[in-house]
Each structure stands twice: as structure tokens, then as C-alpha cells.
């Protein structure tokens, strides 16, 4: 949109393989645009943290209420796989940071490469998650086929929690740990997938040369998002796998 008497501010491209960036009409300067988007994004990240905050609150509440269940439940998780995933996410956070750096220094190829590595990290993470979920399925901790089946209101027996080998026998409401585990990791996994999608979108733009020293805002924001996804996992991992 352009309006009479208003000249759009344009940031020139640093080289032929890049595109110039036009500052949105209602901003006076690129700095204003950059800072606005950044502030907005930080606020959005705050809402994400609060959203998970609710889940963490539920976790702590039931950890207090049924400490035995959580102790035993935590033992059923494979902490090595969890640690592997932690390492993968940490590494991908580093590659993402390097990607942002590459964008800031107008290194198109490097940006693409680092973004690619980050997406790879996300895929490895999800693959490991898949392995973990299948193990839970095999033990009857989370029988995915019966996930949405109704439960018996008289006995409170939940179809998706079968516990074939009786690992959770003797503790009250064994399913609660796995319900919370599933909910938290699934919502986190969804964030990983969204993050990967965003990075792919960045790569598309990067290939066209949209991001360079003059304009790397979207790369920066997606980077922040990716760090948040990482950060949440840093809390999830010890709480679910180690604390018990």
C-alpha cells in the first residue's frame, strides 16, 4: 500500500544475489520496524511460556499429590534417549544461532546450510521421540490405538493405560504420570514441528536473497522461537526423566 505524499523507506540490498527490503508504510524508520517486531515477538514468547506454565503447574501439583507415581513413572522413561534429544536440541540451537549470524553478515549459503542443519536436528528429535513413544506403546503405558476410547466410569479403568508388565502396579493412578508426560511432550513436539516449518520458510526466503545484513528480522525471530522450543525442553527433560 502506498499513500500520497509518503515515501516508502527502502533498505538497499548488499549485493546482486539479495533483494532490497521495503519498510512497512506505517513505520518511519527501519529501526522502529525492527524494534516493534522484536518487542511483539518477545511478548508472544511470554505467552508461550505461560501456556507451558499451566502444564508445569499441573505437573508440580500432581508430583506433590502422588510422589510415588511420579517416581516410578519417571523410571519407566528412557533417560538416555531423553539425554540424546537434549543434546540434539542444544546442537540445533547452536546451528540456529549461527544461521542468524550468517544472515546478519549477508552470507546466504551459510545461512541456508545452518538452517538445513537445524531442520535436520528437528527431524532427529522427532525420530527419537517416535522411538520413545513406540516403547511406551509396547509396554502399554500409552496404547495409542486406544487413546480416544471411552473409559469405564465405574472402575476408572482407562483403555490407553494397560501397563502390560505391571511396572506401575501398587502406585495410585499410574496413568496420571503418563498422561502428563504425553501431553507435555506432544505439545512440545508440535512446537518442534512448527519451528521446523518456520525454518523451512526462512530457507525459502533466504534462497531468494531476502535476508541480509540490512534486513534479517524474520531469521532473528524464528531463531528466538527455536531457542524457546529448546528452552522448554531443557525444563521438560529433567522434570520428566530425571527428577523422579
Amino acid at each position: 500500500m502506498s499513500h500520497d505524499g509518503h515515501h516508502a523507506v527502502v533498505i538497499p540490498a548488499p549485493g546482486p544475489e539479495f533483494q532490497p527490503h521495503t519498510v512497512a508504510h506505517h513505520f518511519d524508520t527501519p529501526v522502529q520496524e525492527f524494534q516493534s517486531a522484536k518487542l511483539g515477538f518477545w511478548l508472544f514468547l511470554a505467552t508461550e511460556i505461560l501456556l507451558f506454565g499451566g502444564l508445569f503447574a499441573a505437573y508440580f501439583y500432581f508430583h506433590e499429590m502422588y510422589p510415588e507415581t511420579f517416581r516410578l513413572g519417571g523410571k519407566q522413561l528412557d533417560w538416555q534417549l531423553g539425554a540424546l534429544n537434549t543434546a540434539v536440541l542444544l546442537a540445533s540451537s547452536w546451528t540456529m544461532a549461527m544461521g542468524v549470524r550468517a544472515a546478519q553478515t549477508s552470507q546466504k549459503k551459510l545461512l541456508l546450510r545452518y538452517c538445513g542443519l537445524t531442520v535436520l536436528g528437528a527431524l532427529i528429535f522427532m525420530a527419537v521421540k517416535f522411538v520413545e513413544y513406540s516403547a511406551k506403546d509396547a509396554h502399554g503405558f500409552v496404547v495409542f490405538a486406544d487413546l480416544f476410547a471411552p473409559y469405564d466410569t465405574a472402575t476408572g479403568q482407562i483403555p490407553w493405560f494397560q501397563d502390560y508388565d505391571g511396572h506401575m502396579a501398587g502406585v495410585p493412578h499410574g496413568h496420571l504420570f503418563f498422561a502428563i508426560y504425553l501431553t507435555m511432550t506432544a505439545i512440545h513436539g508440535l512446537h518442534v514441528l512448527i519451528g521446523a516449518g518456520l525454518i523451512l520458510w526462512i530457507m525459502k526466503g533466504a534462497a531468494k536473497g531476502r535476508f541480509h545484513a540490512g534486513y534479517y528480522l524474520p531469521v532473528d525471530l524464528v531463531g528466538l522461537y527455536w531457542h524457546l522450543v529448546d528452552l522448554i525442553w531443557i525444563f521438560l527433560f529433567p522434570l520428566l526423566y530425571l527428577v523422579p
Partner: peptide, 29 residues
């Protein structure tokens, strides 16, 4: 600052109904 908590709350209610998380259901602890 407040709305995300409502967001997760209604999601949890939906999850409870879909796959019985159990955190709000006294029958499930």
C-alpha cells in the same frame, strides 16, 4: 499475561474429554 493460562486450561479440558488425562477428573485421581 493471563489469557495463555485460560488457553491451556480449555485445551486440557478438551484433552480430558478426548483421552482422559485425568488431572481434573476425580475418578481418575
Amino acid at each position: 499475561l493471563a489469557t495463555p493460562v485460560l488457553g491451556i486450561t480449555v485445551l486440557l479440558v478438551a484433552f480430558e474429554r478426548l483421552y482422559h488425562v485425568g488431572i481434573f477428573d476425580p475418578r481418575l485421581g
